[in-house]
Design a protein around this nucleic acid. Structure first.
Lengths: 236, 236
DNA sequence: ACTACGACGTTTGTCTACCATAGCCACCAA
DNA sequence: TTGGTGGCTATGGTAGACAAACGTCGTAGT
């Protein structure tokens, strides 16, 4: 069941996958900030590999939407603005509504129990202010909904956006009372699924997504985004 | 060494993009059939380039979902089975419903007129059995709905599936009376948008997608479906 | 002083050559 | 027949070189 997710973790066998993992982590962590140029020779030096794996990794990351490659101009970290945040969350909203509605139709009792278990773990992580566990369990919650739906393609599309969202959250954080609202909204989703109420599950999941979107946008507007981020030194 | 003929094309784009375009076209046209291995040395000979651009093109096509790359085993054309078809159309259904509903909210009169104009051209193309124009105008119809919604990210996700769907249609074709039903369903979508009826537009678009899915699956079941291969899911 | 043009450096894109390693398959022996 | 072994093929990776494109800066001309 969870093998779908674990498979993506496995096989850091090849070099270009390790390179892609490293660059992805740095983008998510904010080491590479939006709009920053990613120069191939610099990355080669940093990561101790030649240009070939770096270029392949950048191609892969472009496919994930984390970087943008312009012909003859090179790669840059994808810039994030309010419009993009809203667009991504709108896509997530319709997908999550689909997942929740499907789950309300076909989830087994065991799967619902697992959802509740993950929800409790998420609650604990929030109480202990463990950001890493909070992010992981929140991810597991939504990924499990996707797995229950049985639509791997939709889950792929949905997870593709996760890294961009993690980069946003890393940059802007949560508002003070968002965490408790998240728990309430998750409980509403679980409740609707348990009741086999498809429209209610769809609406609950959609609203959960859109409220999260509003939260991050309000956070982003408080902290003025360092749009024209750091440039790399060494040129010229 | 590249031939003189290829050099004449050379100015248009970078080499790995031309390679990706060529391989993509061949996958869509069925020259490279699902589950077929794509060996780098063979592609180098066919296309007159070295291995480096070929590998980058394959990475890009993997990002588009057209090929699957297994570490140390190489690239294969993504296998298509009934499950994948259904999953892709389900994703398209929720996105198209979103597009149509948003269009019912915010489409200008000019945009609705343009929708109608494209619809008429599609009608003409079907009357003349012009498959190329039919495919193009159908694409324009749905792409315009996406553009009207103003959500470029959603449109990107939606269009990413287009090539896979074209490959399917190329393989299985339409059922005999599907074309006239398509026209009726498009008219219902336009009618709902003109009436600013959001739920009706959403349902019409969703049903249009699911009926198209049913059609292609019934077509596919006539021909024995290809063997299901390993799927690859999402980013990290 | 201002604009336009050209030289220059930087960076990307590509190719060649070569090597290491993982899979695959055929062959051979028990 | 079955199992192991060896070789072949394809992938993955490195190094180095060159061509083309883009930006910048300086200079010449108006």
């Amino acid at each position: 069941m969870s093998s779908v997710l674990l498979d993506a973790f496995a096989h850091s066998d090849t070099s270009y996958r390790r390179v892609a993992d490293t660059i992805r982590d740095r983008i998510i962590a904010g080491t590479y900030s939006p709009s920053m140029r990613l120069k191939v020779p610099q990355l080669c030096l940093d990561l101790g590999v030649s240009s070939n794996p770096v270029r392949e990794a950048l191609q892969q990351l472009q496919g994930e939407g984390l970087v943008v490659i312009a012909p003859n101009k090179g790669a840059t970290v994808r810039s994030i603005d309010g419009r993009l945040i809203r667009e991504i969350y709108e896509v997530n909203a319709v997908l999550d509504a689909f997942f929740a509605g499907r789950a309300a139709q076909i989830a087994s009792d065991e799967q619902i129990m697992e959802l509740i278990a993950i929800h409790r773990k998420l609650e604990q992580a929030m109480l202990k202010s463990d950001d890493q566990k909070r992010s992981d369990h929140n991810h597991r919650f939504h990924a499990l909904l996707g797995e229950i739906s049985g639509n791997r393609e939709a889950l792929t599309v949905r997870l593709r956006h996760r890294n961009l969202m993690r980069a946003m959250r890393m940059k802007y954080g949560f508002s003070t009372n968002r965490e408790s609202l998240v728990l309430n909204e998750h409980e509403e989703i679980i409740s609707a699924i348990s009741a086999r109420d498809v429209p209610r599950a769809e609406i609950a999941a959609k609203m959960h997504c859109l409220r999260s979107c509003d939260d991050i946008i309000s956070q982003a507007s408080i902290e003025p985004a360092p749009i024209a981020g750091l440039e790399q030194v060494g040129a010229r």
